[in-house]
Design a protein around this nucleic acid. Structure first.
Lengths: 169, 169
DNA sequence: ACCACATACATGACAAGTCATGTATTGGAA
DNA sequence: TTCCAATACATGACTTGTCATGTATGTGGT
């Protein structure tokens, strides 16, 4: 059998090594792992979905909010909340009413059941964050967040700008 | 009107500030922005999907691979590739054949058309990575990758371990 | 030689995100 | 005042990711 310069295993290893420092390639895996871990914690804490948990958390901390306000806090598209909220209302976690002053807005507020669901999940989710803080120092977490800030800024740049930028450094 | 201790705007601002340093909360947004940017770049580079691009890139760099090998390099579930590959074969980008020695495996290889699609997209995607390197130094990217390593290690810890860990520090 | 177990893949069911589009409501300018 | 643009939300269509399960194939121990 003709022997290639590199064996297949070596080529795979080289490819893996390159991808390891490719931030773009790392993100999906890290995100998926994070979401999976959150789902497992929530499973033990009353069976909330990730979206539901975020809604309960926001409403607990910031009081009644509109859909747009929640979407802004969570940095997600408002459609995600539009879709999740009717289910949460059906479960009795929240109330939704049109705002009296601006009838386009929905005022979303916690009910007692919502508060209880939050109270059940919160201590477990707190343990998750405490676990993270055992692995990363406060400075490291700040550094991590700073890197995310700059990354997001880069990611939101218009594509055209990036494709032409090398002309004027 | 009764004046709450904090105005709604203040409460929202406080909530946003807290979430800003919450790595778990930052990840979905950063990931979504990254995927969106990648999709826009690929749109200009022949209209590949992100999954297709990754397959072409891996096969170009590492030669013919099995589905499991690609999934391992890309750190994704193999099902994602199982689903994408038949479409890519239909478009003429890849060939798929059962391995002669281990008939469970599929050998996936680039065709000429696949090589051409890669050649069309690669320079544009390279510009994306170059753009990132204008914003982050090599040391910072390494640091970023190192933080991802540690984060992923944390995220893959069994949930039980994390929930009990505070007992023995 | 056989049986149990592991591995590779395909596929169904689902979650979480996006963007685009349609509708009702607001608010400002002519 | 009236009308047009902007805003808030709902909803359809799509992508990327998961996990669970089923089937075919390979492997190692008795």
């Amino acid at each position: 059998m003709p022997k290639p310069v590199l064996t297949k295993a070596e080529r795979i290893k080289a490819r893996r090594a390159r991808e390891e420092v490719n931030i773009f390639a790392r993100m999906p895996a890290a995100y998926a792992a994070s979401r999976g871990q959150a789902a497992k914690f929530l499973q033990r804490a009353g069976g909330l979905s990730v979206v539901e948990w975020r809604v309960l958390w926001d409403l607990s901390e910031a009081g009644p909010l509109s859909i747009r306000e929640m979407a802004s806090i969570q940095r997600v598209d408002h459609s995600q909340l539009s879709r999740a909220l009717p289910g949460m209302r059906r479960k009795g976690f929240v109330t939704m009413e049109r705002d009296a002053e601006d009838r386009r807005q929905m005022n979303v507020a916690l009910t007692e059941a919502g508060r209880a669901a939050y109270a059940q999940a919160a201590p477990i989710m707190r343990k998750r964050r405490e676990g993270l803080r055992r692995v990363f120092s406060a400075e490291e977490l700040e550094q991590f967040a700073g890197l995310f800030d700059r990354l997001e800024e880069f990611l939101r740049q218009p594509v055209e700008d990036l494709l032409e930028e090398e002309k004027n450094p």
